[in-house]
Design a protein around this nucleic acid. Sequence first.
DNA 1: CATGAATGAGAATTCATTCAT
DNA 2: GATGAATGAATTCTCATTCAT
Lengths: 207, 207, 207, 207
Amino acid sequence: MASNPTTVATGSGGPAVDGQRPLRADALRNRARVLQAAEALFAAEGVGVPVDVIAEKAGVGVGTLYRHFPTKEKLYEAILIERIAGFTADARRRLGSENPGQAFFGFLEDLVAQSSLKRDLINAMAGAGVEFEVVAAEAKLALQAAVTDLLVVAQRAGSVRSDVTGPLVLSLIGATCVAADRPGQAASSNEMLAVVCDGLRVTGAGR
Amino acid sequence: MASNPTTVATGSGGPAVDGQRPLRADALRNRARVLQAAEALFAAEGVGVPVDVIAEKAGVGVGTLYRHFPTKEKLYEAILIERIAGFTADARRRLGSENPGQAFFGFLEDLVAQSSLKRDLINAMAGAGVEFEVVAAEAKLALQAAVTDLLVVAQRAGSVRSDVTGPLVLSLIGATCVAADRPGQAASSNEMLAVVCDGLRVTGAGR
Amino acid sequence: MASNPTTVATGSGGPAVDGQRPLRADALRNRARVLQAAEALFAAEGVGVPVDVIAEKAGVGVGTLYRHFPTKEKLYEAILIERIAGFTADARRRLGSENPGQAFFGFLEDLVAQSSLKRDLINAMAGAGVEFEVVAAEAKLALQAAVTDLLVVAQRAGSVRSDVTGPLVLSLIGATCVAADRPGQAASSNEMLAVVCDGLRVTGAGR
Amino acid sequence: MASNPTTVATGSGGPAVDGQRPLRADALRNRARVLQAAEALFAAEGVGVPVDVIAEKAGVGVGTLYRHFPTKEKLYEAILIERIAGFTADARRRLGSENPGQAFFGFLEDLVAQSSLKRDLINAMAGAGVEFEVVAAEAKLALQAAVTDLLVVAQRAGSVRSDVTGPLVLSLIGATCVAADRPGQAASSNEMLAVVCDGLRVTGAGR
DNA sequence: CATGAATGAGAATTCATTCAT
DNA sequence: GATGAATGAATTCTCATTCAT
């Protein structure tokens, strides 16, 4: 269940998922709307947005929101998982590329580019404590696996030095994303990414 | 650094600073206590801590706290400014070093090491919007200047490549700090920093 | 008593009762199920149980529940009426007994014994205000009549003093039931009942 | 602490109680107001009254109410304890009476009479679960002790039969009070009490 | 000046009831 | 008729900020 990233990434609206009986058409639509509204609002105003506001933007009552996500935190989770799954799918897609180095670094660029749009979500993850991590763990592991695959290929091709690991790469990218979203940031995420990528490349110097 | 009340108070309320009349001795002590308590609590529990709790830990009434910091946000600011000033001083101290490269990278290590202890404060800054930045700007500019000085020297010595700027360096370090504080992070701040530093070094490859 | 659905449904919705058209067989069955589930849950968890929970335990949708009982309060009522009717039948059954005193006091024991199992329902009645009483009045009057009959016979036989009335007896028993259900109650309902029964017997003293 | 019933019964407003530093004058007044408003509203409308309403009736903000009673349940408790303490004091006052039987039964009458005015509070106790009982336990034990004292004297004087205990008496009175408050009750609390009291008197018959 | 009591606008969550499927 | 999704008013509780003592 939910272990197939592709399915999960179908994201906001695929019918017949998850072992539960498929949701009714309207329920499905509402769920998607809530997810969409929440994502937008979290991105725009941070995770502080009241649930009422999310519900209103989604055009549903709070009750409906709570029917789908019994807790505000569950809502974070859902969005988070969906996004992670999206990235995982992206990584898998790039796996067959002819130029592994380009595939790898291109993936990182994607990650950073997309994340800049979603201010604060990752911070929300950070703040939400342990339970949270547990639930998102599955999705995260899938992403790690995919990134590691991509990384290993690039390393074999000599485009990335051999002493870095998938998790380290993800941490670095996460850092770049989070930092780039901070207001008043002097450097763009691209500038930062460039340095990080250089650090990841094979180098003769400095080691 | 923050353990010397006098130093702490220097921020924006020390005696005979700032055009305001100098504070009475006890007022000064209270201000320092609040700052210290707030720093500790923000670090330990995040910026969500209620002001009452801070006041209690500081051993003063809320009223007193509010006399010194008319807003919770102003309190963040004060702490922030204080810390930035500390880093600035650190940078200046290293400026005369005989080994500029080591001075520069050592400074970055300090930055990361200390920041890891202060969970959530930087995120708070990030979340607090524009007003916030304005007030802290002065302190930030001072830090940028100091870092830039340190950087330039290192660049002249050939230890850092010439196309990076002080602000970019700060952004990268900020990224590393923020990311490292996220729970469940796979990589340590040191691992991340290592990659970033490699990216900052002079390299023949990849460019 | 409440274990036979047919009996349960007799309350105010059985086939061809009440001037309404007789319910379809499945409707009848659903009504009975709801009643049964509600009785069990009210007894176990108090009247606070959400209707959804009742519906679920009954194996029907909330909508169905509401078709039969247009209000949660109506559901209380129905259960109440059903139980009162059960007691009434019990009283009537005992009316022909050879030992009127024993019949009377035995009936009271039954009342108390059964009520102890139904925590909170009687309290709910109490709290639900006037409307409520109006509807249940019919059932109550029937019970009063039956009890009065039983009482009169016992009084004629000299087993109960002559200055008490049916309603007073019912109030006393009600008191015992309600009180016995209160948690942390020091005395058992039986102990209380014993005193009350002594008070009801013919006595030379104290009057 | 709080073990002296008289002090406790000073009830809503005595200064310098409880080992805590005495409350400020306004705080004390507000606490008393809240208690008074809550008692009135619980009596009039049951324990369902929203806290906002209580606060409004008391003429304070909700925040103030919560400062004094950190939970709605704590508010029940406070009222409850106060009332129990009042009864305890009543019992103690009667202890020196020349006519023990009259003292005992008179006390019971008082209990019933006063309780009729306070609808629902005792039910609230019942519903509030275990924690609740724990806190009120001290007050309850004091009452039990006082009632037992009164009872024993009356038993020695031959006015009450010897096989009843203080807790049983309290349960019986509790039953009468609760029952009498139920709307649509046919019998008055006095009628019920009369029977109960007869049951408590020394009797030759029926045993 | 210091204190901490008072304030009240939210915030998250629940649940009786309605209504589209 | 049955279902369960949708609704949103109501509820309890929190916490930044003000103000009487």
